[in-house]
C-alpha cells in the first residue's frame, strides 16, 4: 500500500509541477532523489529500471562487503550494493523504508540501496555544476555534478560500467 501511495504521490507531484518556460526535453535531466546515510543523492532516471521495496534481502557469503545480498525481482535474482560501503563511507543499519533502486544497462544490472526514496525531480542541465572539492575518494569518480540546490548527482552510466563493482572470484 505504502509504495502505491508513494508512487501516486510522486506522480501527482510530477504532474503538478509547473512547466518552466521553454524547457526542452534535451536540456533537462530527470533524476530520482534518494536518501543514503543521511545524505541526499540524485540519479538519472534513464539508467533506472525500477525502484523495488527492500523486503527480504538474502545475504551472500564470500562477496565484498559492499554487496549487501540478493533479492528476488519477479523471479529473477538481482544483487544489491551498498554505495556507502563502496564509497568508503560510514554505514548504518538498514531502515524499514529501505528500497533498492535497480540500475540497468545492456551488460549490467544491480540494485543500489537507498534508505528512502524522496521523489523525482527535473534539473536543467546547464545548471549542473562540476563536483565540490569536499567530495573526495572513490565517490568523486562517480559524480555527475552538483545541482543548483546543492544536490549531489551520481553518474549512473559510470556506476554501471565500473569493473570494480563486478564480483568474479575463483577459489584458489
Amino acid at each position: 500500500m505504502n509504495d502505491q501511495h508513494d508512487i501516486l504521490r510522486n506522480r501527482a507531484r510530477e504532474l503538478a509541477r509547473p512547466l518552466k518556460d521553454k524547457e526542452q526535453e534535451s536540456d533537462v535531466l530527470k533524476i530520482v532523489e534518494f536518501q543514503l546515510g543521511g545524505e541526499i543523492y540524485g540519479l538519472e532516471l534513464d539508467h533506472i529500471l525500477e525502484v523495488y521495496p527492500l523486503r527480504r534481502l538474502t545475504p551472500m557469503p564470500g562477496v565484498p562487503s559492499f554487496v549487501q545480498g540478493i533479492i528476488n525481482v519477479r523471479g529473477q535474482i538481482v544483487s544489491v550494493i551498498d554505495l556507502r560501503i563502496f564509497f568508503e563511507m560510514h554505514s548504518e543499519e538498514l531502515t524499514d523504508s529501505a528500497s533498492a533502486i535497480i540500475l540497468q544497462s545492456k551488460n549490467m544490472e544491480f540494485g543500489i540501496l537507498a534508505d528512502a526514496i524522496i521523489g523525482i525531480d527535473t534539473i536543467v542541465k546547464k545548471e549542473i555544476m562540476p563536483s565540490l572539492p569536499t567530495l573526495t575518494g572513490i565517490r568523486a569518480d562517480f559524480l555527475k555534478g552538483v545541482s543548483k540546490e546543492r544536490l549531489v548527482i551520481l553518474d549512473g552510466a559510470k556506476l554501471l560500467a565500473d569493473t570494480r563493482l563486478i564480483v568474479n572470484e575463483e577459489v584458489v
Binding site: P61, V63, N72, G75, I77, N107, M108, E169, V171
Partner: peptide, 27 residues
Amino acid sequence: FKELGKQLLRVKNIAGATILGTGQVVP
C-alpha cells in the same frame, strides 16, 4: 536454478540461487 545476476559473475562457493515457494531467495 537461477543465475546470480550480471554483477555477481562468479561468487566463491556459491553456484547460483533459487527462489522458494515462499518467495525467499536461497543461495
